[in-house]
Design a protein around this nucleic acid. Structure first.
Lengths: 350, 350
DNA sequence: CTGAAAGCGCTTACAG
DNA sequence: CTGAAAGCGCTTACAG
């Protein structure tokens, strides 16, 4: 019994199936390709017997010839942001449903991303998906020169090349501004995260421009520096040093908002939403928990992920894809307990 | 320019390097194998020129011969528990540092895990690591019969086969009991999660046995059903229906504890730690956040992950590994703000 | 120490 | 519609 465990079962190959069926390996092979020229009857015989024998084509041997690996390389680096683990697991499931496998590259420190990418590229992924905000842009070039087109998820590449899937962050920022202003806030603050991340830049732009359009003082800005709980927390403490008072805050994303709220409550003794209102962006799972009940601009994640998976499939099949970037309308603003209407009650006015 | 993007750069092969150097492919190949018989001078010449030409061995062609893929398959399924994403990303980094690549299989519904595993196995991973609490145990057999030894992380397999890395959950449960009792709690509750998970069973055993040893009433038990925030929250509400009052609670893990605390505070208006003390298990990142400040039994994660990676490396190299399971002492109990000393002050006694 | 040759498991023109 | 043969990029006995 312990012997059995030592000896690896010999893998069943085309040759075995061919011999068993008295056919050539070519015929057996053809049965597995929908496009191949083969009698329908032969195909079904082969397929049936093959599955009885437990045969599955060896993808390594296949890819040696086809130059296709059915592998999607996924690069993840923005670890303190729960948004990405959620996307990673969800998207992996979807990719697998289309027959693609996910090879994961994780970089804790930005400096080590190069090694991780290099290792991954040696497996010749058909396509690479980047779930990472802070990636040196030459990673894209390296992937593409290794033959793998690159999809940026929730982000545009710095140089505008590569494919991109994201939502209209600017419109999201405008929604946040409208919501705060509609509810009577006039002293706004934007909590910025990674300075050059397109998500950050766009959300800030939409928020600030809309505030000005609405005739409110231009929002003040605090730079948290990262998309993390800790950065948000520190930003919360920093509000103490602001030149002017604030009553409404829009944070670069949910995890920053959650940290910010804690910083402001724990560190400064302010109350959310009684003293200030706070809005996040993403609608990560945690935002809905009773512990946080964060008002936030949802991302249309299902749409975005489906688009990414479809794009990955198309690129992996060498289909021509015209649109380099796809933008989705941001989801609705989800109102929970971190914002509050500061307008005088209509009853009071009358 | 857009043309360049279309044509994939031809990959450099051994043949190219051999031709360039006027050597045989065999010699070039040998330069890449530390054990191979080759003049040291030849090796360095080859290695240098190879890297100039941008040559990297094709792992698919290699594995066709060596039967080794350098791939570690990782199966993840327990998604609502943040513990696993944390481990996944951390461990992936460590595996990559040893030259192994991670192929990910995610199963959202337990029924779909089979497909995911099957797809992954077609890539012949050298070893499979299971980061999932609720996995049908025949997945192990399938992996092993495909030639991939299986490592269970943070869990023992149901049938005791396969390799396992975990911490001494029973000792952890005892620590929790001791801490609560030392601080004057006498009316204990254990919040159980997935009923048959070894982690759950062992933590419960240690906690309850120690409570009895210490002469306290046997803890009451609530079954939350899952390792999730929601399950913990529901369990919190369920305390209302308990036969006897409680003052100290040990939850199956952190995410259950965090949910439980919210359930109890939001739903029942109790205060933690003033009315009841709560202890978790794992010490996930979130447990340290000001929002939660959860008292918890830490897992010795660094040790566990290093052991898992080393074990993976050894198994992938066909080394004989004697110990099927490795247990580490649980980390220390980290006291934060969800527990409170209920003993009368020493001053009062005097 | 090095090279020529066989072969890993497959796919795909090319004949028939 | 099917089969024999070449070849993908590599490694590894086997000679020399």
């Amino acid at each position: 019994m312990s012997d059995q465990k030592q000896m690896k079962k010999q893998r069943v190959t085309v040759k075995d199936v061919a011999r068993d069926l008295g056919m050539s390996v070519a015929t057996v092979s053809r049965a597995f390709y929908p496009g191949a020229v083969i009698a329908e009857k032969t195909r079904s015989t082969v397929l049936e017997r093959a599955s009885e024998l437990g045969y599955r084509p060896n993808p390594f041997a296949q890819s040696l010839i086809t130059k296709k690996t059915q592998i999607a390389g996924v690069i993840v680096s923005d670890l303190p942001n729960p948004f990405y683990p959620e996307v990673l697991t969800e998207m992996t499931g979807k990719l697998q449903a289309t027959g693609m496998n996910v090879m994961l590259a994780v970089a804790h420190e930005p400096e080590k991303i190069d090694e991780a990418v290099e290792l991954m590229l040696s497996y010749q992924p058909d396509v690479v998906i980047i779930l990472a905000v802070n990636l040196a842009s030459d990673a894209r070039e390296r992937c593409e020169s290794a033959g793998a087109p690159v999809i940026f998820f929730n982000r545009l590449s710095a140089d505008g090349l590569g494919y991109g899937i994201s939502c209209d962050n600017e419109a999201g920022g405008r929604q946040a501004a409208d919501h705060l202003i509609d509810q009577g806030h006039t002293k706004l603050l934007y909590v910025s995260a990674f300075l050059h991340a397109s998500t950050n830049v766009e959300r800030q732009k939409g928020f600030c421009e809309r505030a000005i359009e609405r005739g409110v003082e231009p929002p003040q800005i605090i730079e948290a520096g990262r998309f993390s709980y800790e950065a948000g927390y520190a930003a919360g403490l920093d509000t103490k040093q602001l030149a002017k008072p604030i009553d409404g805050v829009f944070c670069a994303n949910d995890i920053v908002a959650i940290g910010f709220i804690e910083g402001v409550q724990e560190g400064l003794g302010l109350r959310v939403p009684d003293d200030i209102s706070v809005i996040g962006f993403d609608n990560i799972t945690m935002a809905g928990w009773p512990s946080h009940k964060l008002t936030t601009v949802a991302q249309p994640l299902d749409l975005m992920m489906s688009a990414a998976v479809e794009l990955a499939r198309a690129l992996a099949s060498d289909e021509k894809v015209e649109a380099r970037t796809q933008r989705f309308a941001p989801g609705r603003l989800i109102e929970r307990n971190t914002t509050k209407n500061r307008l005088p009650k209509t009853g009071d006015i009358k």
